[in-house]
Amino acid sequence: MELASPTRMHRSTRHLLSASLLLLLMVGSGRVTLALRASAGAMSDQVRTDEPLGAFPPALAVGQYTTLADFYWLGLVSYVGDPAQIRDNWPNLPRRLELVLSADPDFEYAYQAGGLLLMSSAQHGAADEVLSQAVERYPDRWIFPFYAGFNAWQGFGDIDRAGKLLLKAAAIVDSPPMLSKIANRLLVSGDRLDQAIQLVEALLADPQPPLLYERFSSELAALRLERDLRQLERARDNFRRLRGRLPAELHELLRDFPELYSVAARINAFYDNSSGVFRSPLLPKRLELPSLDGGSSLNKPKAGLE
């Protein structure tokens, strides 16, 4: 066995020492970096994810702009999942969403998920902007006017616009049948019964597929019945104001308001003199919509009738 010469050994030792020193330096600097990052804490994460990295002009994506939008979208998903941003309600979400949609204005899912995320973070103005764009871009997708209507109601309390948008959603062929009911109940709960009737009449005036025609016709009938019942209820309130008591029976009320005979007959009205409530077998369930606080906005027992 050949023994290594002292010079060779000396060289090997030097190499080993140098390598060890470098390894130490590498590990040490890594630890320092980690420590610095940890001391910066959430701030460093905020710097990393708070602001979009900057718009890359879609024209420079050499035709691959859907892929560019995908990368922006992944950035948005990562931003949405960041605990610090969740705590702050995603302040830069509108800008990030704008970036995605500027790269690919046909990214349908981005409108849908983005609109929902904005609504859930109470950024109703931005949500309205995004959803309004989607309503225009996808006229055959009921989900966008539905979301936009919900946002108008929840975010701005704009029942007129919400009702219009929900009815617009209901007029789209593959929309769920309950949409027109929700729209009407929303308008009715906001004391916009006449407007609801007008909107449904306007929808029926346009040529509609048979299924939708049937759906809207039954909704219109329900709205008219509700209007008639309310007319009787108003007469009951007037009766109480004049006489200081509730009418004992329906005929007593109709004697004072003879113009309502035809209305009561048409809807086959039934009067419960113990509660003072009017019902019709043609409308088994009165039109009402649960309010945001979980209660009901309609058919609450009236203070004077309790």
């Binding site: 691959q64 859907t66 892929t67 995908d70 979208w73 992944l74 998903v77 949405v80 899912y109 849908q112 998920a113």
Partner: peptide
């Protein structure tokens, strides 16, 4: 990446793979 995204993963697969 498609497994990390929100909604429609096949779009990411198609875009990245074909690009």
């Amino acid at each position: 990446v498609a497994n990390l995204t929100l909604g429609w993963p096949i779009r990411i697969v198609a875009d990245v793979a074909l690009t």
